[in-house]
Simulated scan of single mutants.
Amino acid sequence: MSREAGPLIDIVAGARPNFMKVGPITRTLEARKAKGGHLRYRLVHTGQHYDARMSGDFFAQLGIPEPDVNLEAGSGTQAEQTAAIMVRYERLLLESPSQACLVVGDVTSTMACAIAAQKLKVPVAHVEAGIRSGDWAMPEEINRIVTDSISNWFFTTSPWAGENLRRQGAEDERIFFVGNTMIDTLLANLERLRPPPFWDELGLSSGGYFVVTLHRPSNVDAAASFKQLLVAIGGGTRGMPVVFPVHPRTAKTLEAIPGLPRSIRFVEPQPYLEFNYLTRHARAVITDSGGITEETTVMGVPCMTLRDGTERPETVSVGTNEILGADPAALAPALDRLFAGHWKKGAIPEKWDGRTSERIVAVLESLLPA
């Protein structure tokens, strides 16, 4: 964090995907500062999610600076986390005010810090604003709606997100279509991607395996339905290796499921460079994650989403993603089309060009003059 005079922006992150989104913004602010830019920033880690991989290899791999502040909010229920983050961030602002609060994505930290900032009359900018799934059963959807309802400025990944905001009542002059900072991070690291240690051990080769990630409660919390999905994946992928980095939520359910397909190889969660190497070289990705569908779209990798909808429709209308729903029966015909060579090629959405953080910082410089 620069100590010179100038408007101070809090950049808030609370979970691993957040750091992938704020990393390009901090680097751009540093580069602008070196050329006479007037903005300062303070990187605030709420401590919503914390592990050694995040604090060590993850920051080093992506060149993300260590946080200036760690609120150490810790785990708990949704309400407990929200309350802890709000109390601790409010205390920070009272002791050391900032001139703006920039939040990203849709985790609990996003909403909690936006609320605390607004109540102290600190303007809020939301990166990835306007994204909507329409599914209020997702905690992330509640976080998005609340955050957007009280934000001053909106940085969007797509024109579709801007339309959502206009329907909510946001004025055009507060909406900035800038692109996707996750893609800034991906494009900056494409040539640095590297195979995981188990690449040779599992006999993997480019285009010769699948990647699966599943973590949403509707897919993984019930052992019987989860097993049906895995059996359908094992059958539809025709004996090819299926690499499944296992989320902690998913691991708990797997312990109670016997007799899974041998082709599915369960591995530890992977660091950024290794995971995206796996994704880039996969025959296809099967997931219920929204962020991964953005990365597969840019890398041109076929993607199948096991959900009934998506908050990122541009990955379907423009990119390589298709929504299959959660019915295991939908996998076989989709995989048959893939093996027959009939999967769509896809394209890269507008402004997903690696320069999103530059556009965000340019807007912030105009909104927060020296």
Rank of each mutant, 00 (worst) to 15 (best):
C113M: 09
I115G: 15
Q118E: 02
K119M: 09
L120F: 05
L120C: 10
L120E: 09
K121C: 14
K121E: 14
V122M: 02
P123V: 04
P123L: 02
V124S: 03
A125I: 03
H126A: 00
H126V: 00
E128R: 03
G130W: 04
I131N: 13
I131P: 07
G134N: 00
G134S: 00
G134W: 03
D135L: 06
D135W: 03
E140L: 01
E140P: 02
E140V: 04
I142M: 06
I142W: 04
N143A: 03
I145H: 15
V146K: 11
V146L: 13
T147V: 08
D148H: 12
S149E: 05
I150T: 05
I150G: 05
I150H: 05
S151E: 00
N152I: 02
F154I: 01
F154Y: 08
F154Q: 00
F155Q: 00
T156I: 14
T156L: 13
P159A: 10
P159V: 05
W160G: 04
A161V: 10
G162D: 05
G162Q: 01
G162E: 05
G162F: 02
E163S: 07
E163L: 02
N164R: 00
N164P: 00
L165A: 04
L165M: 03
R166Q: 12
R166A: 08
R167G: 10
Q168M: 14
Q168D: 14
Q168S: 09
Q168W: 10
A170K: 13
E171S: 15
D172P: 06
E173N: 12
E173S: 11
E173D: 11
E173M: 06
R174E: 06
F176E: 08
F177H: 15
F177T: 11
V178G: 02
G179Y: 04
T181W: 05
M182V: 06
M182S: 05
D184K: 03
D184P: 08
D184L: 01
T185A: 01
T185C: 00
T185D: 00
L187F: 03
L190Q: 07
R192F: 09
R192W: 14
L193C: 04
R194F: 13
P195L: 10
P195C: 11
P195N: 12
P197F: 09
P197A: 15
F198G: 04
D200Y: 10
D200C: 10
E201L: 15
G203M: 13
G207N: 01
G208Y: 07
G208A: 12
Y209K: 09
Y209F: 15
Y209A: 11
Y209S: 11
F210S: 04
F210N: 04
H215E: 11
R216H: 12
R216T: 12
P217L: 08
P217V: 10
A222T: 15
A224S: 14
S225P: 14
F226H: 07
K227F: 11
K227M: 09
K227C: 10
Q228E: 14
Q228L: 14
L229R: 15
L230Y: 01
L230M: 07
V231I: 15
A232R: 07
I233K: 07
I233L: 11
G235M: 15
G236W: 09
T237H: 08
T237K: 04
R238M: 12
M240L: 15
P241F: 02
V243H: 06
V243K: 08
F244R: 02
F244A: 01
